[in-house]
Design a protein around this nucleic acid. Structure first.
Lengths: 141, 141
DNA sequence: ATGCACTCTATAGTAACTATAGGGTCAACA
DNA sequence: TGTTGACCCTATAGTTACTATAGAGTGCAT
C-alpha cells in the first residue's frame, strides 16, 4: 500500500496479519481512542504507519500482562510525557500486580473446594455424589 | 409479608437482606430464567417462598465457586432430575476445575513478568524505569 | 466489465451484572 | 383522611473487551 507521497503504508489487513490482531479489534481500538486515527486513502481506506504498528504491539504486550484497556491508555499517555512520570507507571504496575495476586488467591480457594467436592464423588459412582447436596447445603430434617 | 391464604412470603427486599444479594440482581436472575418467577401480591409485588430462598442460596454458593450462570442453570436442572444424572454434575465440575487451573497458571505467568519489570525499576528512581521500554520493546537503532 | 478479496460504517450480541428514569404500592402518622 | 417515606414495579442503557452481522463501496486482475 503506497500513498501520494510514495510513502509505505499498511492497510488494516496488513496490520492485522503482522500483529495477529483481528481487523475488527483494530478498528475497535481506534474507536475507543487507544490507537490514533490513521490517515485515509482517497477511497477511504485506513493507511497505517510503522508508528501505529508499534503502538499496537505495545497494546498487545500489555494485554498479555493482563492490563485493562484503560490502564493501557494511561500507560500510553505516560510514555508520551516520558521521564518524570515513570513513578506513575510504577504505581499502575504495582496496583495491577496486586489485583492479579488477589485473583490468583481467590481462584486457588475455588480450586481447593472443587477438588474436595470431586474427591467425595468418585468416577464410577452414580448416586450419592455430594456436589449438588453440598451446594444445596440442606438442613432438610 | 402475608398473602390471601395467610402463608408467609418474602418481599424481594426481605430476600435481598437474608441472602445478601442485591434486589436488582434477584430480578435479573429471574429474567434470565435462573430463579423461578414467584407469585405476586395484588399490588404486583413479588412474593417469594422458602424454596426460592434455597435456590438463591444454591446460586450464591455456586457463584462463589466460580461457576457461570449457564453452568448453574445446568446444575439446577440436574438437581431436579436427581440421581441418574450425577455423572453430568461431575463432568461439569471437573471441566470447571480445569478452567480455573488454566486461569491460575496464566495469571501466575503474568505475576512473574510483572514482578521482574518492577524489580528493574526500584522505588526511589525517577528515570530509567524499564517498564515502558520493555513494553515498547524498541529496537530503535 | 466483471469477479473477488478487501474495506467501510453501523448495529447488536456476549457475561453478569449495575444504574437510571419514571412511575405505582403500602403502612404509619398527623 | 391525606400524605410522607420506604419500598416496589418496568424498561432501558451502561459496563469490559471484544465478536458477529448486514449492507454497501474499493481496488486490482483477468
Amino acid at each position: 500500500m503506497v500513498n501520494k507521497k510514495n510513502h509505505l503504508f499498511y492497510s488494516i489487513g496488513d496490520l492485522s496479519k503482522s500483529t495477529g490482531t483481528k481487523v475488527v479489534t483494530i478498528r475497535y481500538y481506534e474507536k475507543i481512542g487507544l490507537l490514533p486515527e490513521p490517515p485515509r486513502t482517497e477511497g477511504g481506506y485506513r493507511a497505517y504507519t510503522k508508528k501505529h504498528q508499534e503502538i499496537l504491539f505495545f497494546i498487545i504486550r500489555s494485554r498479555a500482562l493482563g492490563f485493562s484497556l484503560i490502564e493501557i491508555q494511561n500507560l500510553l499517555k505516560l510514555s508520551e510525557n516520558d521521564i518524570l512520570l515513570n513513578q506513575d507507571v510504577l504505581t499502575i504496575t504495582k496496583n495491577h500486580l496486586e489485583n492479579i495476586r488477589s485473583k490468583i488467591s481467590s481462584l486457588q480457594k475455588m480450586e481447593t473446594s472443587l477438588k474436595n467436592l470431586i474427591k467425595e464423588c468418585p468416577d464410577g459412582k452414580i448416586s450419592g455424589c455430594g456436589i449438588i447436596d453440598s451446594l444445596n447445603n440442606y438442613s432438610d430434617t
